[in-house]
Design a protein around this nucleic acid. Structure first.
Lengths: 218, 218
DNA sequence: GTTTGCTTGTGAAATGATTCACAAGCAGAC
DNA sequence: GTCTGCTTGTGAATCATTTCACAAGCAAAC
């Protein structure tokens, strides 16, 4: 089964449903309806059903979805049955925060190596991970069979490092540097950017302010 | 001028163009074409032109866009001419990393207050910001005229805090807690979730692996 | 002035995502 | 068995976004 073509937002929703299902499973709930999943995830019930139906029929009409089975199915679809081997490049404030973030390993993403250029940082142990010099990246990524790279460097070096990671064989990259990276090879890249997100909110606030001024103007 | 209805992804792209324009301005470049902006932002040139044309005609046919003027225009559209007053709730690892993140104030988001419940943290100064008890949130948010709230607490408390922030008068919320929050009032909320993002990549990796197995199967 | 080369701005077309609406189906009550 | 209440799965319809394609326009060369 080579899954259907499916949008990025649909995948995100599936991951969200999975999180909810795990909670419900923990609470001992056995059945859940698309309506309930929708409420808790901020989607509509039709959306939930469509998303799930892309991969098969998992529900029982009149009853809902079996929490446990559906959680297993989603884990399989999302590739979360195994745990992924991750490396971090750039042990600055964000990088260090990520190393200390317990949820990563708890949710299946094991940080197995960390790299930095700064001599003052190389050799340190940060939350149990030894920081290695960048020069060892290719070697270690191969040796440790790293599958996902996280970039948390300044924007200037990010593109180059993305290239190194791709060349060294990682299959996907999560980028925290505030630049749009172009992907080498076919290695998908996701960028997370706090400032960009805040700027999105700024637009909404500014628009709201403009509207207010208009409607309450003398 | 009450701006047009515009999608979240379009706003994100505008913010991206603005960043590129600032770079170009810094380099002394005076004109830029939609094609160049497209290349650097990962969009298509038609997309760039459509995005910009939603708000007016800023380019010169045959030449391109005046970098300086367009940057100013985008700043105005996105509400980035002023600097926004931000508060942080939850000074854990992510919260502390944010307090230390210079780019926030540099790019127009000034953290003017921080809160935490933990007695061990209250009173500390983290990167120059004093951590206050959560009980003071409403009072300080009002006094400091905070416009945007950032939530970096455990997921259990996030919804409650979103409510407090909305009630206290913030106009937008950026949420780092791994829960889908329902908005109180009409306060928009954006959630950033590292694990969710990694799970999206996991899906791609798993799909690629499935496809490989299919096509190279005996 | 005319030609050339390049670029914008934008309707129209194509594509993609979401919502609607309802037949099909399940389980429990009687 | 049949009736009731509820829920899934899904084609069709709607809505949104992206891409196409090209007329209109600018500047420099000659």
């Amino acid at each position: 089964m080579t899954g259907p073509r499916i949008s990025e937002s649909a995948v995100r929703r599936l991951a969200l449903y999975l999180r909810l299902l795990r909670d419900l499973r923990g609470q001992g709930v056995e059945l859940v309806s698309s309506r309930e999943l929708a409420e808790r995830s901020g989607a509509t019930s039709a959306q939930v059903r469509k998303d799930l139906s892309l991969f098969g029929s998992f529900g029982k009409r009149g009853r809902g979805y079996a929490v446990d089975a559906l959680a297993d199915t989603l884990e399989s679809i999302l590739g979360l049955e195994k745990s992924w081997r991750v490396c971090l490049v750039g042990v600055g404030k964000i990088g260090a925060a990520l190393l200390g973030y317990r949820d990563l390993s708890r949710r299946g993403f094991e940080v197995v190596a960390a790299f930095d250029t700064e001599p003052g940082k190389v050799g340190l142990e940060v939350f149990g991970i030894r920081v290695r010099p960048l020069s060892e990246l290719a070697r270690i990524v191969r040796r440790e069979r790293v599958e996902i790279g996280i970039i948390a460097t300044p924007p200037e070096s990010a593109q180059e490092i993305a290239k190194c990671l791709a060349d060294a064989g990682v299959g996907a990259i999560l980028n925290f540097a505030p630049v749009e990276l172009t992907e080498s090879d076919h290695v998908p890249i996701r960028t997370m950017d706090v400032v960009l997100e805040l700027e999105g909110l700024s637009y909404l606030l500014a628009t709201a302010a403009r509207t207010d001024r208009r409607s309450t103007a003398s």
